[in-house]
Computed example of a mutant assay.
Amino acid sequence: MATLTDIGKLITTDANSNRPVIAGTRTSVRRIAGLYNQGNNAEEIARRLNHLTITQIYAALTYYHANRQEIDQDIAAEQTAYEELAKQHYQATKS
């Protein structure tokens, strides 16, 4: 008989960032969501991040879809912070 996997144990919270990650890895759900939102499907993501299994990718995508608003807001906030830092750097190098 096959061993069943408790999918609730595939995603955990990183103690440092307090963000969801794939258990046993440092790969964030956010990273998987970003690749997915760029048009990659689960199989393409698994090929690109070959240290992950297809099961882990689907778990991350399931978590993302169940919590999409929060994760998309987190991604948008990070993008805004990045753009602000880039703007500050550009202005500093221009002076």
Rank of each mutant, 00 (worst) to 15 (best):
Ala76Arg: 11
Ala2Leu: 15
Met1Val: 13
Gly34Lys: 10
Lys87His: 11
Val29Ser: 08
Pro20Ile: 07
Asn67Ala: 09
Ile45Asn: 05
Ala60Trp: 05
Ile75Asp: 03
Thr53Arg: 05
Gln91Pro: 05
Ala33Ser: 05
Glu83Cys: 01
Ala59Val: 08
Ser17Ala: 09
Ala2Gly: 13
Thr55His: 10
Thr27Val: 11
Arg26Cys: 09
Leu85His: 06
Ser95Gly: 10
Ala59Leu: 04
Ala81Tyr: 02
Gln79Ile: 09
Thr53Asn: 04
Gln88Cys: 06
Gln73Ile: 06
Ala23Cys: 10
Leu10Gln: 05
Tyr82Thr: 02
Glu70Pro: 02
Asn40Gly: 03
Leu10Asp: 00
Leu49Asp: 01
Gly8Lys: 01
Thr55Phe: 13
Thr62Asn: 06
Leu10Asn: 05
Glu84Val: 01
Ile57Phe: 04
Glu43Ser: 12
Ala66Asn: 15
Asp14Ile: 07
Tyr36Asp: 10
Lys9Thr: 15
Arg26Thr: 15
Ala66Leu: 14
Lys87Ser: 10
Lys94Pro: 00
Arg30Asp: 11
Ile11Tyr: 07
Tyr36Gly: 10
Thr55Asp: 13
His51Thr: 13
Ala76Pro: 05
Arg19Met: 08
Thr55Trp: 11
Tyr82His: 09
His89Ser: 12
Met1Gln: 07
Arg48Gln: 12
His65Gln: 14
Gln73Glu: 14
Tyr64Gly: 07
Asn40Ser: 11
Leu52Lys: 03
Glu43Gly: 07
Asn18Gln: 14
Thr53Asp: 02
Ala59Asn: 00
Glu70Leu: 13
His89Glu: 04
Tyr63Ala: 01
Tyr82Asp: 04
Leu10Pro: 02
Ile45Arg: 00
Asn50Trp: 12
Lys9Met: 08
Thr13Tyr: 07
Glu70Thr: 15
Ala66Ile: 06
Val21Thr: 09
Tyr58Leu: 14
Glu78Phe: 12
Asn18Gly: 11
Ala60Pro: 01
Gln79Asp: 07
Ser28Thr: 14
Gln79Met: 09
Ile57Trp: 09
Leu61Gln: 03
Ala23Thr: 15
Ala77Gly: 05
Leu61Thr: 06
Ile54Thr: 04
Ala60Leu: 04
Ala92Val: 03
Ala77Glu: 12
Tyr36Phe: 15
Tyr63Pro: 02
Ile32His: 00
Val29Phe: 09
Gly24Pro: 11
Arg68Val: 15
Thr13Asn: 07
Ala66Phe: 12
Gly8Phe: 02
Ala77Trp: 08
Arg48Lys: 09
Ala59Ile: 05
Tyr90Thr: 00
Leu52Tyr: 02
Gly39Met: 10
Ala60Asp: 02
Glu84Thr: 04
Arg30Ala: 11
Thr25Ser: 10
